[in-house]
Amino acid sequence: MSDVASESDRAARVNAAGRLVDDYSIEITPKDVASLRDAAPGIAPGTAVSVTFLATDTLDQRIAAATQARALGFEPMPHLSARRIESLAELEATVSRATAHADARRMFLVAGDPPVPAGPFADTMALVRTGLFERHGVRVIGIAGHPERHAVMDEAMAWRALADKDGEIRARGMTTLIVTQFGFDAAPFLAWLTELRSRGIDAPVRIGVPGPAGIKTLLRFAATCGVGASASVMAKYGLSITKLLGTAGPDRLIEALADGIEPAHGDVRLHFYPFGGVGKTMTWINDYLAATDPARRRH
């Protein structure tokens, strides 16, 4: 292949990756509100901003973060952790305050880490079946996808649970949004997307991508979340687990995803986990978009 052809192929791959990055979503904690405010001029209006549910944060802090995201012109998506919610009254207060104060029309539901529920909700399906979300005007329910593995379910159980939740959400007149755990290797994501669509689940998908961060930080989050980070996987990502200095970004992962995603995979976008900070992630996104098309840069 000639150098000209190689350069043309490279340009096409980068441009495809740029289109995949466009219309991203991003995740914050309530403690990231100041960083989100600082980064706001570089974030496209209407960008979906997920607000995580951390056990150390109060309901007031979560609502305030979602409200600030809305005030900055973004689309807040508060997280709810089923097993940490102590009562139906607490759930209703959370949903009603999020919709009233932050105009939140999206909610993201997880079962949560505690092995024993603090209240009546053992899983996300129990939350959906309360009917509170549609009654309060929520239009989109986010649920988690696990392309590598689920922490407690085997593969058959995980697929069945995903299909059941999607069906219940749709039956209640809402839209399902699947957001995956983050990963470092495109292959599991692509195989999972193919399987997802073959099972007739056509919900939009956001693939979880780590924002640029120190290598030690990335490996720590991978260990915490059960994400594969072997030497061979990390080499594909562009770093060595024996050299822990420096920062790594998701360039190679995103380009491999762009190479592999096909029309049959349906509506697929990216969701950024800003492990290295919101500002650093937004700088990386805007630099990457500008490299593919200068018109995409935001300041």
Rank of each mutant, 00 (worst) to 15 (best):
V4A: 15
S6R: 15
R10M: 08
A11I: 00
A12E: 10
R13T: 05
N15P: 14
A16P: 02
G18I: 00
L20W: 00
V21L: 06
D23C: 13
S25R: 10
S25D: 02
S35E: 14
D38E: 14
A39W: 07
A39S: 07
P41V: 02
A44Q: 13
A44C: 11
P45C: 06
P45W: 11
T47I: 02
V49W: 12
S50A: 13
D57T: 08
T58V: 02
Q61P: 02
R62A: 08
I63T: 08
A69P: 04
A71Y: 15
F74S: 07
E75T: 08
P76K: 05
M77H: 12
H79L: 03
S81Q: 13
R83D: 01
R84C: 03
S87K: 11
L88I: 14
E92A: 08
E92V: 01
A93V: 14
S96F: 13
T99F: 11
R106Y: 12
A111M: 09
G112P: 05
P114Y: 10
P117A: 08
A118L: 11
P120C: 07
P120V: 01
D123L: 05
M125D: 15
A126V: 00
L127D: 01
G131T: 00
G131R: 07
F133C: 08
E134V: 11
E134C: 12
E134Q: 14
E134M: 12
R135S: 08
V138D: 03
I141N: 10
G142E: 00
E148L: 07
D154W: 09
E155T: 08
A156K: 15
K165N: 05
I169R: 12
F182N: 05
F182M: 09
A186G: 02
L196Y: 09
G200T: 03
G200F: 11
I201F: 10
A203M: 03
R206K: 14
G211D: 04
G214D: 08
L218Q: 05
R220L: 14
R220M: 14
A222P: 02
A222Y: 09
T224R: 15
T224I: 15
C225P: 07
C225W: 12
G226K: 04
G226L: 01
G226D: 00
G226Q: 00
V233L: 11
M234N: 10
A235W: 14
A235F: 14
Y237C: 06
Y237A: 13
G238V: 04
L239F: 15
L239D: 10
S240R: 14
T242K: 15
T242I: 13
A248E: 06
P250C: 06
P250R: 11
D251W: 05
R252S: 05
A256N: 07
A256G: 07
A256P: 00
L257C: 01
D259Q: 06
I261G: 01
E262P: 01
P263Y: 05
A264I: 02
G276D: 02
G276S: 08
G277A: 09
G277Y: 12
V278L: 11
M282G: 10
W284V: 03
D287S: 09
D287V: 01
D287E: 11
Y288Q: 03
L289N: 03
A290R: 14
A290N: 10
A290G: 13
P294C: 05
R298C: 02
